[in-house]
Amino acid sequence: MTAAAAEALALGLHEDLSNEDYHADKMSLSSSGARKLLPPSCPAKFRYEQDNPQPPSKTFDYGNAAHKKVLGNGPDLVVIEHDAWNTSDAKAEVAEARSRGAIPLKQHEMDMVDAMAGAIRKHPLAAALLDPAYGAPEQSGFWIDGPTGIRRRVRFDWLPSIQSGRLIIPDYKTAADASDRAMEKEIEKYGYNCQAAWYEEAAQALGLGGDDTEMLLIVQEKKPPYLVNVIGIEFLSREIGRGKNRAAIETFANCMSTGRWHGYADAEPNYLALPGYAENRDKEIYL
């Protein structure tokens, strides 16, 4: 572990901690990790992914590059000046960029993320929430969970620096479809309600905001005209997220104390029913 990663073990807010050093703290639990502990995943998958980080991929490159352009913090973006990347020269340049932590992009991909950042700056609410005069990107925090004593951590996409009144924490996402209907499904699929509850608790634990702290999603589509939707998550959904977070924290604490990261069913079988829609459909016909 690097000296910076060792420093990250200190509790409190860290303004200049790198993404790599933030993730080097394997003894603490993050929001994304908490979601991986719960069904349909399980602790065994969480542990494997912690010990075997995913290699860079084009799927994540676009989102990370957009984060860099929009938030102003992140890995270097490098244009690979080759029409095709299957030549030996192109492969060598891509490998060199990745070896130093940069994101290799084609020119049209760089143009895309530039256009996305431009669309954010033209959106009145998103631009105000991400105004560099009143906030900073990639702020990390560490604190102790009271009920269990485990370490929890958070990495805010953006943290306002002037906190008069209610603290609003923006979190930037990219999506194929940022419409309300699509994002309702995305909130459930990716557990953004759990993330909102986690970030709000983090801000309170770190002394940054009060009970009225709120996380807002800034969601942007990845195709022209790069539409933006600023989304709040309703109270009940956030409370459900809070309850799921608590279950994940308790699971993490138990796994840490026992050293056992269980999978789906170890000692007893799991008895499953048909999905509700199928049971209601078929029971009237066959029973």
Score class of each variant (00 low, 15 high):
M1P: 15
E7G: 07
A10H: 13
L11S: 08
H14E: 02
H14I: 05
L17C: 05
H23V: 11
K26V: 14
S31K: 12
G33N: 12
G33Q: 15
A34K: 09
K36A: 07
L38R: 05
A44S: 13
K45I: 09
D51T: 13
D51H: 05
D51P: 01
N52G: 03
N52R: 14
P55A: 07
P56V: 09
P56Y: 05
Y62K: 10
N64V: 14
P75L: 02
D76I: 01
I80A: 04
D83Y: 08
D89T: 15
A95Q: 12
G101V: 08
A102H: 04
L105A: 05
I120S: 02
K122V: 01
A126P: 01
A128E: 05
P137D: 04
G141F: 03
G141Q: 06
R152P: 00
P170H: 07
D171R: 09
Y172Q: 07
A175K: 15
R181M: 06
K185H: 07
K185M: 03
E188M: 15
C194E: 10
Q195F: 00
D212A: 14
L216E: 01
L216N: 06
Q220S: 01
E221V: 07
K223E: 06
P225E: 06
Y226G: 04
Y226D: 00
V228W: 02
I231A: 06
S237H: 15
R238A: 05
I240R: 07
G243P: 00
R246L: 10
E250M: 06
N254W: 12
M256W: 06
R260L: 11
H262Y: 15
D266S: 14
E268L: 09
L272V: 15
A273I: 09
E279N: 12
N280D: 10
E284K: 14
I285F: 03
